[in-house]
Design a protein around this nucleic acid. Sequence first.
DNA 1: ACAATAGTGTCTGTTAGACACTATGCC
DNA 2: GGCATAGTGTCTAACAGACACTATTGT
Lengths: 224, 224
Amino acid sequence: MKPLPCSIDPVVFALIDNQPHVLLRKRDESSQAFPDVYALPGGLMYPHEDKDLTAAADRVLRKKTGLQSFYFEQLGALGPHIDPRGPTLVIAYMAVMALDSQTKPLDPRSKWFPVDKALKMKLPFEHNSTLKMAVERLRNKVNYSSLPAHLLGEEFTLPQLQKAYESVLGFDLDKSAFRKKMAEADFIEEVVGKRITGAAFRPAQVYRLKASTGLHHFAANLRR
Amino acid sequence: MKPLPCSIDPVVFALIDNQPHVLLRKRDESSQAFPDVYALPGGLMYPHEDKDLTAAADRVLRKKTGLQSFYFEQLGALGPHIDPRGPTLVIAYMAVMALDSQTKPLDPRSKWFPVDKALKMKLPFEHNSTLKMAVERLRNKVNYSSLPAHLLGEEFTLPQLQKAYESVLGFDLDKSAFRKKMAEADFIEEVVGKRITGAAFRPAQVYRLKASTGLHHFAANLRR
DNA sequence: ACAATAGTGTCTGTTAGACACTATGCC
DNA sequence: GGCATAGTGTCTAACAGACACTATTGT
């Protein structure tokens, strides 16, 4: 009975040009396993440094992305898989973040890949199945939760929010139905008096997430 | 950076007299931690014996329950929590099984507790939160999946299935609506020609789960 | 015939989805 | 006024929920 090291493997999603992307990172040249290969930006848990798994995931995400604000949840435990250094337990996470103009650039080894493209890549370890799991969870959860709001910045308009839902779902939604749903779901609020002007058409009202931790869940799916 | 031992903590549900029960086991007298206290029937993973986490969970469940057939799924990874033997990573599972007349009796240290009663008990380690997690998952999943069918034996009638749903949900369902839902969900099939006779009323048609692995999920909840 | 439960039919209020309409800004 | 998009109103077909009805057995 030998204890196992434990790896935190996060799948990080963001929207670029309204397309869902996932963050991959070229492994260190000096790595014993799969040097210079694109992989999930994982990291080992340090039992004496990390209070618990959530803290470990938070630390790994901050370190690997340089970003401060994101939503994340655990997908589950996998493995153990075989690493050249021995069997390793894997805890998979899904994270969702907003990229905007103020976002720090990534370190040069990291890169955003369109989700569909990443799904076709050959990734090391069991990262292909982890990625697949995360994409399924993302697509599924979008059906009945406020998750896509976390792909946008602090503030956003309803048309932007609708586009975020549509881009992850992969099909278009009816404007009227969508707005009714959002009103009823009641997880966003107007930023009173603030609208997006400047374009040659009617300005859009600005909204933000209501102060609350976690996701909001709908009673029924957006489309059956 | 020291590796961690890994404990498999399953929450096992079954129906007794149409009431949901959960399996707890008195810890060994000789145990270093919490001897003789009721706890989840967990066990350590043996990295050299268990192919992966699923195999480990399967082994632990068979060993602790003596039962062969059940549905189980991972709830997630927790911890590490502090055990007298040092920090331990925990992988929580939810399992659902059918008890019938042929079921072997439990070992004398194990006992079925009504779910509501178990929730009020003081359990060791973080077993209280694990149990709470499992109960929430169970109650939630019943809303939109075929899970309760696994609380019944190989064969069952629609009234029995409805009672299983009702007992976990905690409220009654409309017979007509329930049957329409089941027909549409299409995860059970008639055992042709087989009915339950013997009582002084119309016999009920016998059904079984269609051959398929895993759960069936509905498009909408049973009740909003 | 009757009791008791299995199984089906029907009616109605609600709602999702489609789509037409109005509103508001810049040119 | 025209154009482009934001935001609202309306109509209808489908459906969930309530409940009444029929079916089938043993006594």
